[in-house]
Simulated assay, not measured.
Amino acid sequence: MYRIGAFSKITSLTVKALRYYDEQGLLRPSARDESGYRLYSEEDYQTARRIALLRRFGFSIAELRDVLRGSGSDDELAVYLQEKRSLLEREVRRKQAQIDALEKALASFSQQKGEDKAMEPEQKTLPALWVLSARFCGAYPEVGAHIGALYKAAKGSACGPPFSLYYDEEYREGDADIELCLPVREGTRGAKRLAGAKALSLLHIGPYDNLGPAYKRLLDTARAQGLNCLSPSREIYHKGPGMIFKGNADAYRTEIAVPVRPAE
């Protein structure tokens, strides 16, 4: 039997840690001497080795409790280690996605000064158009899934960049009211006429996930000019991803146009 000091040395677990594991019910000493000092057995040593191994791989106290309760052999322990590996791999992928998002955010900061100079809102008249359209309720990235079908239906009669109409006044998650439109020549089967409108417009250069500041600039300009913004707003995709390849998102060119009228 080993007293706690010696047991600490042979297991590379601090005395503080051993006391904590005792309190948590993970590694209780097999006995105590007449003075109440903890005494650890060979079996306790094997448990301590397992705990040290599992803590090294980031197992939480709750996970340790599960593993120690459910693994009586090395083969059973290996199953838990494989599960932990899968969890860590998923965590690595999640962290990498966060890093990628941070990289985009950092890149957008360096772009914004140049983009702000390009994003000068202007009043313009959106002409009446004949369009093929697909209206759906869903997430914003789903727009791309409908473009191919519209081009196929157009059968070569497309005559302008596709655009989306957004009927919601607010940002929505997963249930936005969207109509994707493709300008086509008059007489195209299935086409409808979209009326023109007075609008406040600006050109956004860069990824779609950085459109928020552009919308803010439009809304601020409308307020300063005494204009009311109307629905649906429009995003015109002058340059974006192709049908197969996404291309360089930093070079995407998206015109945002919001119908306006003088405030009463």
Rank of each mutant, 00 (worst) to 15 (best):
G148Q: 12
Y140W: 13
G156W: 07
E142D: 04
T125S: 15
A158I: 05
K124R: 15
L150H: 04
S157F: 09
A145T: 14
G144S: 06
K124M: 15
C159I: 06
A145E: 14
A139S: 13
E122V: 12
S133R: 10
V143I: 13
K124F: 11
Y151H: 11
S157Y: 09
A128M: 06
G144F: 08
L132A: 00
A145L: 11
E122S: 10
A149C: 09
S133W: 03
A128V: 05
I147R: 07
P127I: 08
K155D: 06
K124G: 13
G156S: 00
A154T: 04
K124I: 12
E142N: 09
P141Y: 12
T125A: 14
L132Y: 06
L129T: 08
E142W: 01
R135N: 04
L126C: 11
P121N: 00
S157L: 08
A149Q: 11
K152D: 02
P141I: 09
A149F: 04
P161M: 04
G160I: 00
A128T: 10
R135I: 07
E122A: 12
I147A: 02
R135F: 03
S133Q: 10
R135Y: 04
L129Y: 05
A154R: 01
K124Y: 07
Y151S: 01
Y151D: 03
Q123W: 12
C159M: 08
H146N: 01
L129Q: 15
A128C: 00
L132M: 07
A128L: 03
S157C: 09
V131L: 08
P121I: 00
L126K: 13
